[in-house]
Amino acid sequence: MVRVSFTANLQRHVACPPRTVEGCTVREALAAVFAENTRAAGYVLDEHGALRRHMIVFVNGEAIQDRATLSDPVADGAEVYVMQALSGG
């Protein structure tokens, strides 16, 4: 099982409580969350399923590498954080 948490800043627009889901990759874990929260998906991913430009996903503290297809693996017990990438000054 994988625990997925979202930035508090997203909660103002769409409720995204932490979820514990099944999944072997970031894509699978997020898909499991978004299956029950379809509106949230559009805030994190673009229309092609890629991570939005100013968003970032950490798996156990490490930023994912594959922002286009989210193929980074997640091990059982992993912590996935969906955050805003700091941009601008």
């Binding site: 800043n9 627009h13 559009g42 805030y43 100013h54 805003q84 941009s87």
Partner: peptide, 8 residues
């Protein structure tokens, strides 16, 4: 136009 979360 959300800076981080896309256009709604």
């Amino acid at each position: 136009g959300h800076g981080h979360f896309g256009t709604k």
